[in-house]
């Protein structure tokens, strides 16, 4: 007897749908995050090989500081180039040259990233609850196979969504390169409310 009951089909199908939605939300949120970044970096191009930015007027912005608290690398254009720049008013008020930043950590570490992952994870937990509930109630071979596969889907998706919480997440940029940079001074003497 390997028949799969309607109940298991429906519940399993819904659990599968939840897993898909969770993954879809994660993709969308990641994409949106890129757009948010572009609010700040629009017109600037980052070159990962040389670790510098090029501004719309073709000036290079080189790394000059590392912000421990916000885990950002700061890049700056030569002040002289900016002072002479025709579109300076659209770009910066700073007399030190235009600055741009890049987060050290990959996407999910941003505040918004954690939120979107949290929601996606909620859906995966729900899918797991449904699958486990059905596993308790149904024991035909076909059902066991289907629910087992779904459980595996839940677990892998759950792992994927929590990879940013693990010690060495995949794609984590090697920290070594930035260690030579001077840290941005901490002028903040208040208790840090960014944990």
């Amino acid at each position: 007897m390997t028949a799969i009951s309607t109940e298991v089909l429906l519940a399993g199908g819904y659990a599968a749908l939840l897993i898909l939605i969770a993954r879809g939300l994660d993709l969308l949120a990641r994409h949106t995050h890129g757009q948010t970044e572009r609010f700040r970096t629009g017109g600037f191009r980052y070159d990962p090989d040389h670790d510098h930015w090029t501004c719309p007027e073709d000036q290079l912005l080189r790394p000059y500081g590392y912000d421990h608290r916000r885990r950002l690398i700061r890049y700056r254009a030569p002040a002289a180039a900016c002072t002479a720049c025709p579109v300076r008013a659209l770009c910066t008020d700073s007399a030190e040259g235009r600055e741009i930043t890049r987060p050290v950590d990959p996407w999910p570490h941003s505040e918004a990233g954690r939120f979107h992952r949290g929601i996606a994870l909620t859906l995966v937990v729900l899918a797991t609850v449904i699958v486990l509930g059905e596993l308790l109630r149904n024991h035909h071979l076909g059902e066991l196979i289907m629910l087992g596969a779904l459980l595996a889907g839940c677990l892998t998706t759950g792992r994927r969504l929590t990879d940013h919480l693990h010690a060495t997440p995949g794609g984590f940029p090697a920290p070594a390169r930035y260690q030579g940079l001077p840290p941005t001074p901490e002028t903040d003497d208040r208790p840090d409310d960014y944990d």
């Binding site: 969308l28 994409h31 949106t32 995050h33 757009q35 948010t36 970044e37 572009r38 609010f39 700040r40 912000d67 916000r70 950002l72 700061r74 930043t101 941003s110 505040e111 918004a112 941005t184 002028t187 903040d188 208040r190 840090d192 409310d193 960014y194």
Partner: peptide, 28 residues
């Protein structure tokens, strides 16, 4: 999802080297 959603997230990306903490973490 691509623009104003990004717009609403702006507040959550505090990057400037402010000497004082941003007080509205949870509102944002």
């Amino acid at each position: 999802t691509v623009e104003a959603w990004a717009f609403l997230q702006l507040g959550a990306r505090q990057e400037a080297a402010s000497p004082t903490p941003f007080p509205h973490r949870w509102a944002v």
